[in-house]
Write a protein that binds this DNA or RNA. Structure first.
Lengths: 300, 300
DNA sequence: CCGGATATACTCACTTCGAGTATAAAAGGA
DNA sequence: TCCTTTTATACTCGAAGTGAGTATATCCGG
């Protein structure tokens, strides 16, 4: 059996949350995701990436999961020896363990995807985006209805509700419609900050995966410090989801799951009544669900 | 930047359901999953696999999604040129398009995982498996409680309910505990039919992914013929999940989602009252949810 | 025409969920 | 000191969804 030869490369989407801003680790002043060769000495892909991230950044890496493997024709390596296979990973870094967060190297998610942050209501930029998408729908003749449904569904138009999990579909639609610089359109007519090659698409994949995951796995705690208040926890989830949540219902959800316990201490750094501090119950298996199903949205 | 060279290989978990038996396409008389080199001519991984499957089997491939990419040290290729990277995919084949199903080449899932089929109640083989796992728990000293919780959670012991999505965790626990032939234990002391290298683990990954997916995406219809009865649909879902469902609630769930419509015809092949035939509403976007959350279990 | 088998339709209690309201405990200024 | 602001925490209530069971319809074969 002959086996195709290829170059293997690892790409990491490393995220942290500082305050209420989700961030991603970047190189080249925010133009690319960190990546590197898959060395032969590594035990496995996972171990290879962990080691590599540790060396490069000094941040201990908590949660790590594989995202997707790409090998499209345009990803061919310079020399003709074969094509490049890129294996992407999603990693979560604890805020306090990431002193670089906020400094250069870490950039906010919503710099690249300004239309994904709905915490302050529907972003105004969406009007421009969906306007351009309507033109793109109108330009199609054969399958116009299908295209319209895809746009309406992904962007929450025509009665559909905004779904924060569809970030990847949204980016891909915008790519198809030529609304992002990576698709070759002029920077003036593009939306959001672009990245090298398909790195922004990989970032969108990571964000979408994380947004979906926080709904049924307690991964948020990988981003929290050792002890935290319920409001901090809520703001972190809100930062990731790009949505504001209903406070009483969020709290009910959290203590139904019995994932956290009081430390006994409290903090009064927030201005008003002092908040109790909580810690994650590590006894809980990672397999346990965070929320039964959906996030408790607030109506703004 | 140097890039590691590697051999790239595609592995496919192709599934179909015949009657009420879920099957997987195999080679070597059921000892291995179909696999092949990733050729340089292919446009992308997805296209490469689609083409390759079409050539090899003659079955048109409906749904196709990437599963996982493996590159562990023990997967090294014979010649010393580098290691092998295996990219696995899950594909769904429509029953009527798979005339080979039932014939050699297609084997039932539960031949490899007899403990995963709970349609006739908890399989007796589970008593033997969990017995051996208890020994394995007792053999641990340092983190015995953690190990016990993992076993209880995965196998539905000590108050926990059986969760059909945890097939991969169960296989991995059994591998760790040395209960499967792939882990090097004697065939006499192993459970289920084993496969070449880590192919059974990949199959478990595919099964787990599909079981999770049918709960929130209408992928079952990729396995159904053009028109079908509600009972057929239910039996197909039951075959995949390895569980029996509550009939009235299953039907309520289905027509709440408005995923199917009557063809106007009926069939009386089943013995009793003739059943209405339905078809999948292709107008529905693939992104739409199948069931709000969980499957409607029946209490057996 | 009656029982067995299968399909389809309806009911009801209970839990969960969305939304809103009420009370508690700090800080700071008049 | 007391009142306002701010944040935290606790409780209520109706609507919707879910689990479980029952009732009716329509075929087949004797």
């Amino acid at each position: 059996m002959t086996i195709g030869l290829a170059h293997a490369e690892l790409i990491a989407v490393l995220s942290a949350v500082t305050g209420d801003e989700p961030r991603v680790m970047t190189v080249r002043s925010g133009d690319a995701l960190p990546s590197g060769p898959f060395e032969l000495g590594h035990r496995s892909l996972q171990a290879g990436l962990r080691e590599w991230v540790g060396d490069q950044t000094g941040h201990p890496l908590g949660y790590l999961e594989q995202l997707y493997t790409f090998a499209d024709r345009d990803r061919t390596h310079e020399d003709a020896e074969g094509r490049t296979i890129s294996i992407s990973y999603l990693g979560l870094v604890r805020e306090q363990a990431a002193p670089g967060a906020g400094k250069p190297g870490w950039h906010g998610w919503y710099e690249y995807f300004p239309w994904e942050d709905h915490r302050g209501g529907r972003p105004e930029i969406l009007a421009a985006i969906t306007g351009r998408l309507q033109d793109w729908v109108a330009a199609e003749t054969a399958r116009r209805e299908h295209r319209r449904r895809r746009v309406d569904f992904a962007f929450g138009l025509d009665g559909a509700a905004w779904n924060e999990d569809l970030g990847l579909q949204r980016y891909e639609l915008m790519y198809e419609a030529g609304l992002v610089a990576e698709a070759g359109c002029s920077p003036a007519r593009s939306f959001g900050r672009s990245m090298f090659a398909d790195h922004r698409r990989i970032l969108a994949t990571g964000i979408a995966r994380l947004r979906a995951k926080i709904k049924y796995r307690p991964v948020v705690f990988e981003l929290m410090p050792e002890s935290f208040t319920l409001s901090q926890l809520q703001r972190t989830v809100e930062a990731l989801a790009g949505l504001t949540l209903h406070k009483p219902n969020f709290r009910r959800l959290i203590d139904q799951q019995e994932l956290i316990e009081e430390t006994g201490e409290a903090t009064s750094e927030t201005g008003g009544r002092p908040a109790k501090l909580f810690r994650y119950r590590h006894a809980v298996l990672e397999e346990r669900a965070l929320s039964g199903s959906k996030l408790p949205l607030s109506r703004n």
